[in-house]
Amino acid sequence: TEEFVRLWREAVRHNQTLHWNGTDFIPGDEWAEEFARREEEKL
């Protein structure tokens, strides 16, 4: 979602874990980066 992408970019900028829907998205984590890339492509 647009909100997820916005929060993810913020988390990456501050190198912080994003807690989203009970899942931890960690900047630099391969799975999280791939998920975020797919979400961005949907926008």
Rank of each mutant, 00 (worst) to 15 (best):
T1V: 13
T1M: 14
T1S: 14
T1R: 14
T1D: 12
T1A: 14
T1K: 08
E2A: 14
E2T: 10
E2N: 11
E2R: 13
E2D: 11
E2Y: 10
E3Y: 06
E3Q: 09
E3M: 09
E3C: 15
E3H: 08
E3W: 07
E3N: 11
F4S: 00
F4Q: 00
F4R: 00
F4L: 02
F4V: 00
F4Y: 02
F4A: 00
F4W: 08
F4D: 01
V5H: 07
V5T: 08
V5E: 07
V5R: 03
V5D: 08
V5A: 04
V5N: 10
V5F: 06
R6L: 11
R6V: 08
R6N: 12
R6W: 11
R6T: 08
R6M: 09
R6A: 08
R6I: 10
R6Y: 13
R6K: 13
R6Q: 09
R6D: 13
R6S: 07
L7V: 02
L7A: 13
L7S: 07
L7C: 15
L7N: 08
L7I: 03
L7H: 09
L7W: 04
L7Y: 04
L7R: 14
L7D: 07
L7K: 11
L7P: 00
W8A: 05
W8V: 06
W8Y: 02
W8G: 05
W8I: 04
W8S: 04
W8F: 03
W8T: 03
R9W: 13
R9M: 08
R9P: 07
R9N: 11
R9G: 12
R9K: 14
R9Q: 15
R9L: 12
R9H: 14
R9D: 13
E10L: 06
E10D: 12
E10A: 03
E10H: 04
E10P: 00
E10G: 00
E10Q: 06
E10V: 04
E10M: 04
A11S: 05
A11H: 04
A11F: 02
A11C: 15
A11T: 01
V12W: 03
V12N: 03
V12Q: 10
V12K: 14
V12H: 04
V12R: 08
V12C: 00
R13G: 06
R13D: 09
R13E: 13
R13A: 15
R13V: 13
R13S: 12
R13W: 10
R13C: 15
H14W: 10
H14M: 15
H14K: 15
H14F: 13
H14N: 15
H14Q: 15
H14P: 00
H14A: 14
H14G: 10
N15K: 12
N15L: 08
N15T: 06
N15I: 04
N15Y: 05
N15F: 07
N15W: 08
N15A: 08
N15S: 09
N15M: 10
Q16D: 04
Q16R: 14
Q16F: 11
Q16V: 14
Q16C: 15
Q16P: 02
Q16E: 12
T17C: 15
T17W: 07
T17S: 09
T17A: 12
T17K: 11
T17L: 09
T17R: 08
T17V: 14
T17M: 10
L18R: 00
L18K: 00
L18Q: 01
L18A: 03
L18I: 06
L18G: 01
L18V: 06
L18D: 00
L18E: 01
L18T: 02
H19L: 07
H19K: 09
H19G: 03
H19C: 08
H19Q: 09
H19Y: 07
H19A: 05
H19P: 03
H19M: 04
H19S: 11
H19D: 04
H19R: 11
W20H: 03
W20E: 01
W20P: 00
W20M: 03
W20Q: 00
W20S: 01
W20D: 01
W20L: 05
N21S: 08
N21P: 01
N21F: 12
N21W: 11
N21K: 14
N21E: 11
N21L: 12
N21A: 11
N21Q: 14
N21V: 04
G22Q: 05
G22H: 06
G22I: 02
G22S: 06
G22D: 09
G22A: 05
G22F: 06
T23Y: 14
T23P: 01
T23S: 11
T23R: 15
T23L: 15
T23W: 13
T23N: 13
D24S: 08
D24F: 10
D24G: 01
D24M: 10
D24H: 05
D24N: 09
D24I: 12
D24P: 07
D24L: 14
D24A: 09
D24R: 05
F25T: 01
F25G: 00
F25S: 00
F25L: 10
F25P: 01
F25V: 01
F25D: 00
F25K: 01
F25H: 07
F25M: 06
I26P: 05
I26V: 12
I26T: 15
I26D: 07
I26F: 10
I26E: 09
I26K: 14
I26G: 03
I26W: 06
I26A: 11
P27E: 00
P27G: 03
P27C: 10
P27A: 02
P27V: 03
P27D: 01
P27W: 02
G28D: 02
G28T: 03
G28H: 03
G28S: 04
G28V: 00
G28L: 03
G28Y: 02
G28F: 03
G28R: 03
G28M: 03
G28I: 01
G28W: 02
G28P: 03
G28E: 02
D29Q: 09
D29R: 04
D29S: 09
D29L: 06
D29I: 06
D29Y: 04
D29H: 09
D29T: 11
D29W: 03
E30V: 13
E30R: 12
E30T: 13
E30H: 11
E30L: 13
E30D: 13
E30F: 11
E30Y: 11
E30S: 13
E30P: 15
W31Y: 08
W31I: 07
W31A: 10
W31L: 06
W31V: 08
W31F: 09
W31Q: 08
W31N: 06
W31M: 08
W31R: 07
W31P: 02
W31K: 09
A32H: 02
A32R: 01
A32Q: 01
A32K: 02
A32W: 04
A32D: 02
A32M: 03
E33M: 09
E33C: 11
E33Q: 07
E33S: 04
E33V: 07
E33H: 08
E33D: 09
E33I: 09
E33Y: 03
E33G: 03
E33W: 05
E34V: 03
E34P: 00
E34M: 10
E34G: 08
E34K: 07
E34W: 08
E34I: 06
E34F: 04
E34H: 08
E34A: 13
E34D: 13
E34Y: 06
F35T: 04
F35A: 05
F35D: 02
F35W: 09
F35R: 06
F35G: 01
F35E: 03
F35Q: 06
F35Y: 14
F35N: 03
F35K: 04
A36D: 01
A36L: 05
A36P: 01
A36H: 02
A36S: 03
A36G: 07
A36V: 12
A36M: 09
A36T: 03
A36I: 07
A36Y: 08
A36W: 08
A36C: 13
R37G: 05
R37K: 12
R37I: 05
R37W: 06
R37T: 08
R37M: 09
R37V: 05
R38K: 14
R38S: 12
R38L: 13
R38M: 13
R38P: 05
R38I: 12
R38E: 08
R38C: 15
R38N: 12
R38W: 08
R38V: 11
R38F: 09
R38T: 10
E39S: 13
E39N: 09
E39K: 08
E39P: 01
E39A: 15
E39Y: 14
E39W: 13
E39I: 15
E39G: 05
E39L: 15
E39M: 15
E39T: 15
E40K: 08
E40P: 04
E40T: 11
E40V: 13
E40F: 13
E40A: 12
E41C: 14
E41S: 11
E41V: 10
E41T: 11
E41P: 02
E41H: 11
K42H: 06
K42E: 05
K42S: 07
K42G: 04
K42D: 03
K42F: 06
K42W: 07
K42P: 02
K42I: 07
K42Y: 06
L43R: 05
L43H: 06
L43F: 09
L43E: 04
L43I: 10
L43T: 06
L43V: 07
L43G: 05
L43K: 04
L43N: 04
L43C: 14
L43Y: 09
L43A: 07
